[in-house]
């Protein structure tokens, strides 16, 4: 069910539900990942997995990643499939409302960016910019479960 959970990002606690995002992604996961032929590269987990990020840096990385998906990923993921486009819209709009909640942490200065998260996010952008924009966007969207698994 769409139960909220309390997410702990270091000092920041946010009550939100990822269930709808996860349901939207699960519905199109096979379709989106099939459009990404590059097995040898990952945007989010290369060279280091998100799971290696320190607890104190979790809020900053999460905030950066939500901005990254809203600003740079979803808009380049339009497909010829109307159903997939509607699910991407659902995920993108859900990202907006989750991001709004994450901003609470920023406003309470609980979302400090340490060296590690800054480096990690730079690496993610480098991975992204290493591919042409459509491939990079589609690969990032296909890795949404990596972000969700790590957050949850």
């Amino acid at each position: 069910t769409a139960g909220n959970r309390i997410f702990h990002f270091g000092a920041c606690r946010v009550s939100m539900s990822m269930t709808e995002i996860r349901a939207g992604f699960t519905a199109i996961k096979a379709n989106i990942q099939a459009r990404d032929p590059i097995r040898t590269l990952s945007i989010l987990s290369y060279p280091h997995s998100l799971h290696k990020v320190k607890s104190s840096d979790r809020c900053c990385i999460t905030h950066h990643l939500f901005n990254f998906y809203v600003d740079r990923v979803f808009k380049h993921c339009k497909t010829e499939d109307s159903y997939v486009n509607r699910k991407i819209s659902s995920i993108a709009n859900s990202f907006l409302s989750v991001r709004r909640k994450l901003r609470q942490c920023n406003e309470h200065n609980q979302c400090m960016c340490g060296q590690e998260s800054t480096e990690k996010f730079k690496q993610i952008l480098a991975n992204y910019e290493g591919l042409n924009v459509t491939s990079a966007a589609m690969k990032s969207l296909g890795e949404l479960d990596i972000l969700l698994d790590w957050m949850e």
């Binding site: 600003d71 979803f74 808009k75 993108a92 990202f95 907006l96």
Partner: peptide, 13 residues
């Protein structure tokens, strides 16, 4: 949605 208005050139689906 708000996303389409703010980030996707006011596109319609």
């Amino acid at each position: 949605g708000e996303y389409e208005r703010e980030y996707a050139n006011e596109s319609w689906i």
